Simulated scan of single mutants.
Amino acid sequence: MYDILIVGGGTAGLTAAIYARRAGKTVLALEGTAFGGQIASSPLVENYPALPAVSGLDYTNALLGQAKALGAKVKFGRVTAAEQTGEGFKLTAGKREYEGKALILATGASHRRLGLPNEEALTGRGVSYCATCDGAFFKDKDTAVVGGGDSALQSAIFLSNICRRVTLIHRRDTFRAQDAYVKAVGERENVELALNSQVTALHGESALTGVSVTGRDGSVRELAVAGLFVEVGQIPDNGPFAALAELDEGGYFRAGEDCLTRTPGVFAAGDCRSKTLRQLTTAAADGSVAATAACAWLDGTAQEK
C-alpha cells in the first residue's frame, strides 16, 4: 500500500513524485511506454527555464534520476483498470495490481499523426507537433501548418512572427477555429492559405525538404518547406479512469488549476487535463500542485473546494 500512486512517467508524473517524496510520502509511478513522455525524443529543448539548451533525453534522464534518488519507486506497466477500494485505489497493469491511498493521473496525451510514410523518421528533423516549442528553429525559413482548429491557427500566427512564410493547409474550405484567430491569420501578409487540401507526402531523408499538397480536385502541389507543424489534435488515453475522473468532450480530465477531480483523493496533472496550454512548464506546475494537494488530502489538511 503506497501513499500515492502516479499513472504516467512524464514531466507531470515525475514532478509529482519528487514533490510527494520531499513531503515524506511513499510513491509509485507507473509508465506504460517510456519515462519522460514525448519530450524524450526531442533533439533540443530551448524553452525550459534555466535549461536553455538540453536534449529531451538528457532532460528526461535528469528528471527520472532526481525522482529515483529521492526514493520514488518507478515501474513499467500500462494501467488498464482503476477502481476505488475501501482503503484507497487499486490499479491493474498487466498481471500486477498496485494499491495506494491517493491517485495522481498524469497519463499525458499523444499528438495525432498524419499517418504518412517517413513521418516518424522526420519527427524532430523538420516535422513538429509544437510551434511554441520548435518554431524558433525555423527563423526566416518557409514553413507550413496542417489543421483548421484553434491550435493550428494559433501556430500559424505564432510562426508568422518568426518565419519568412507560413502556409496553412486545411482539408476543408472553412476553419473550425474562433473568429478572432481566423481574422488574425487573414491579416498576416506572410501567411498563405491552402484550403480543401491535404499533405500527402513528406520529402527529405536526414531533414524535411518539402511536402506534397493534394487538393480536393486531385491537383498536386510541391511545397518547399523546412518545417511542417502538425496540429490535427491530440489523443488522451484516459478511458480506463472515466469512472474516477470526469472527461470532457475531448476525452481530457475535467480538473482545474487545483488539479482536483470529482473523486476525493484523485488528482489530474499535465497534458491529460483539460487546459489551454500544454508545455513542459505547465506539466511541471501541475505535478507540483497535484502532489501538494494529494499530500494535504492524505494529511487531512485539504481545504474544501
Rank of each mutant, 00 (worst) to 15 (best):
G239E: 13
A245V: 00
A293F: 05
V185H: 10
L280A: 14
G265W: 00
G204M: 05
D248H: 11
R278M: 12
L195W: 11
A290P: 08
V213H: 10
A283C: 12
D258H: 09
L228V: 02
D179P: 07
S219G: 08
L298H: 00
Q234D: 12
K183W: 04
G210A: 08
A194E: 10
P264A: 07
A269I: 07
L208G: 01
A283Y: 12
V191Q: 06
A201G: 00
L247F: 07
V225A: 10
H203G: 02
G218V: 01
A283M: 11
G210L: 12
A290V: 13
D217I: 00
V220F: 02
G239W: 12
L280Y: 10
N196A: 14
D237C: 08
A180D: 15
P236E: 06
S212A: 13
G218E: 12
A290C: 10
V191K: 09
E205I: 07
L260Y: 14
R221I: 04
A284D: 10
L223A: 11
R278S: 11
V185T: 01
N196R: 10
A184T: 09
T214H: 13
V232L: 01
D217A: 04
A293D: 03
G256F: 04
T292V: 06
E192I: 08
G186E: 12
A224N: 15
T200G: 03
R254H: 04
S206E: 15
A224P: 15
A294S: 03
D258W: 06
T282A: 05
S219A: 15
T292E: 03
V185Y: 02
R221Q: 15
A194R: 11
A268I: 07
L280I: 13
L260H: 01
N238D: 11
D179M: 04
A242E: 09
V232I: 14
G233F: 06
S212E: 13
W297I: 02
D286T: 03
T214S: 15
A296T: 01
F253P: 06
E187I: 05
F267C: 03
Q234T: 15
G250S: 15
A194F: 02
Y252H: 15
V199W: 04
E205N: 11
E192S: 08
T214C: 11
L244A: 07
F229H: 02
D299W: 06
L202K: 01
V266D: 07
V289A: 05
V220I: 12
A294W: 00
G233N: 04
V191P: 01
Q198V: 12
W297D: 01
D271P: 13
E249P: 04
T276P: 08
T261P: 14
T261C: 06
W297T: 00
A180E: 15
L247V: 08
D179N: 02
S212L: 05
A184Y: 08
